[in-house]
Write a protein that binds this DNA or RNA. Structure first.
Length: 558
RNA sequence: GCCCCUGUAGCUCAGAGGAUAGAGCACCGGUUUCCUAAACCGGGUGUCCCGUGUUCGAAUCACGGCAGGGGCGCCA
């Protein structure tokens, strides 16, 4: 059981006893927290419960705290103390801690995992238009989405990682036009890149790949191209582009379970069916040749267009409505998590309003907005633009600083804080990235375990564990906290907490390593060696599990 | 004009009702016959953007400002 849950239970029981004793009726238990206090002198965990009760009990919180304290009787808690202005502090017993460490050894790769009820959750992330290669601005959502997926999976959630491919809008038309012009360029012919086209060098790259895979385009005469052939080239361009995106994502240790094509919603008539439902709800009307939806009536700022007047094609919003209906009504996801760039925030409200009309609980859709990543150079902010070609590609970053350092950097900021990256600083600092410190800690543990193996030290069968030094105890406490961390992150999606935990855990490991020799020349100390090998093993398990959830490697040597 | 996010140490950022506000980096000094020195130990005088309020208690909540970013398309 999670520590905080255990302590909550203890407190609730003690509180119930108190209420029974005092014959209090109509009692509403207050919201209170059990958390690790900032100051270690206040114990391992603390609660503010007495202060929250002060008003309803009309009594001094210290008195309440003492009464609750008297009602707590638990073997696993070594010490319960009351502190001003009304905290109850807990110190957990060493035997409890030792039990947790042995549990970790037993569970190995599963340590930290939970067996909650098996929910079905979809995480949709990246979903960048297939109109070029991924760049710096796309890394954040990719890293956050994949990490959330990993954490949820550890909590026994059945996760589908999905990429929504916007292959139906007019951006694709511009993309295809850009490809045609670049192929013409490669043919040595006249070409024009207009402002609305994609001018980045990645398009040249993709064009080259198209020619090498489909050599017919080598000498193709585009002045006579038919509609059908344009459609064909569009398909090919998207295919090649998606391949590039997949390769880039793979370099960051990311893969999706499902690639969902926007066009499939149109081809299957699922979009029309969905709009029909909204029509029957009297939410759809035609004005100025376009089809509109009455979102203002539902509470949005204004109405929105579903089908454009110019070509009767659906807008992004229209297909996205059908897409989300599909997620809930056809594929029965209990929860859907969308990792979106903050520029989509206006989209959330109207999507939720429509979901409600489609009899889907909007609370089952969580949107994680990550704030924009901007680039700073010479104290000036540079804006990314795919179209102007003003971007740094994901592949360049990964090549330069490595996937692990890249993931760590983007993971270590909370998603709602803006990131302004000075690229030169970002690259030059990469060797000082905390990820190497963390991995070094892991390598050092492996080195000890390797030595134990060489010496045929059997420390796992008899499991002797006796925590003595401060370093051992502090490290063990951190390890015991790990399942709590995963549970919390799976609820609040604050994946940046993982990086901070990894760093703190590594610091404790390094301190343990420096000050608590595992192998000693004195053969009388075999018991200590065995005990420390257990802690070493547990630390390695925890750190490796955590690194794996963050999508990073755990090197055994550095 | 309306909506969203952000403002905390020199820099990059955690902390989001609770006790003395933290970490990484940078900077200064020390540590190696011994499991990896990519390490360890020591060194922090902060207007928590400003103001007013709510509360036993505010960096955290409310209201009003200031500053930066994003959104308010028949783009996606």
């Amino acid at each position: 059981m999670l520590i905080t849950k255990f302590l909550h239970n203890c407190l609730n029981e003690a509180l119930q006893k108190l209420i029974d004793e005092q014959n209090i009726t109509n009692f509403n238990p207050p919201e209170y927290v059990v958390e690790k206090p900032k100051n270690k002198n206040h114990g391992d965990y603390a609660t503010n419960l007495p202060m929250q009760l002060a008003k309803t009990f009309n009594e001094n919180p210290i008195n309440i705290a003492n009464k609750i304290k008297d009602n707590i009787d638990e073997n696993d808690i070594e010490e319960v103390s009351v502190a001003n202005p009304g905290f109850i502090n807990f110190k957990l017993s060493k035997s409890w801690l030792e039990k947790e460490i042995l549990k970790c050894i037993g569970q190995k790769d599963d340590f930290g995992n939970q067996n909650e009820k098996n929910k079905k959750v979809q995480v949709e992330f990246v979903s960048v238009n297939p109109t070029g290669k991924l760049h710096l601005g796309h890394i954040r959502g990719a890293v956050i989405g994949s990490t959330i997926s990993n954490v949820l999976e550890s909590q026994n959630v059945s996760v589908t990682r999905e990429y929504y491919v916007n292959d139906a809008g007019n951006q694709i038309d511009f993309f295809c036009e850009s490809i045609i012009e670049r192929i013409k360029e490669l043919q040595g012919k006249k070409f024009i890149i207009t402002e609305e086209m994609y001018g980045g060098i990645d398009i040249i790259d993709i064009s080259k790949k198209i020619i090498s895979k489909y050599p017919d385009y080598q000498n193709y005469n585009f002045s006579e191209i038919t509609e059908d052939e344009i459609e064909n080239l569009k398909k090919i361009s998207i295919e090649i582009c998606i391949n590039e995106i997949m390769t880039d994502l793979k370099s960051l240790n990311i893969s999706h379970d499902n690639w969902f094509y926007e066009s499939s919603l149109i081809d299957s008539k699922y979009l029309d069916e969905t709009i029909d439902i909204l029509s029957k709800l009297n939410l759809v009307y035609i004005k100025d040749g376009a089809t509109w939806i009455k979102t203002e009536e539902l509470g949005d700022d204004r109405d929105n267009v579903l089908f454009k007047s110019t070509n009767k094609k659906p807008t992004y919003f229209a297909t996205d409505i059908a897409y989300h209906r599909d997620k809930f009504k056809e594929r029965f996801f209990d929860n859907v998590i969308n990792v979106w760039g903050s520029d989509h925030h206006g989209h959330i409200k109207r999507m939720k309003l429509i979901l409600e009309k489609l009899e889907i609980n909007p609370d089952n859709l969580d949107v994680i907005l990550n704030q924009i990543v901007s680039l700073k150079s010479n104290n000036k902010t540079v804006k990314f633009s795919k179209r102007s070609g003003n971007s740094i590609f994901l592949s360049e970053i990964v090549e330069e600083i490595g996937a692990d350092a890249c993931r760590f950097s983007f993971l270590s900021r909370s998603s709602e804080s803006q990131m302004e990256i000075d690229l030169d600083l970002f690259k030059s600092k990469s060797s000082e990235n905390p990820v190497f410190y963390i991995q070094y800690a892991h390598a050092r543990l492996c080195s000890i375990l390797k030595k134990a193996n060489e010496k045929h030290f059997d420390f796992e069968s008899k499991k002797i564990l006796s925590l003595k030094t401060n370093e051992e105890i502090n490290l063990a406490k951190k390890i015991a906290e790990y399942p709590e961390l995963l549970h919390r992150v799976s609820k609040n999606y604050g994946v940046h907490e993982l990086t901070f935990f990894a760093l703190e855990l590594s610091q404790l490991i390094q301190k343990f390593y420096e000050n608590n020799r595992v192998f000693d020349n004195d053969s009388n100390n075999k018991e200590i060696t065995k005990s420390r090998l257990i802690i070493t093993k547990a630390s390695k398990i925890t750190l490796a599990n955590l690194l794996s959830l963050m999508g990073m490697s755990s090197p055994e040597e550095m």
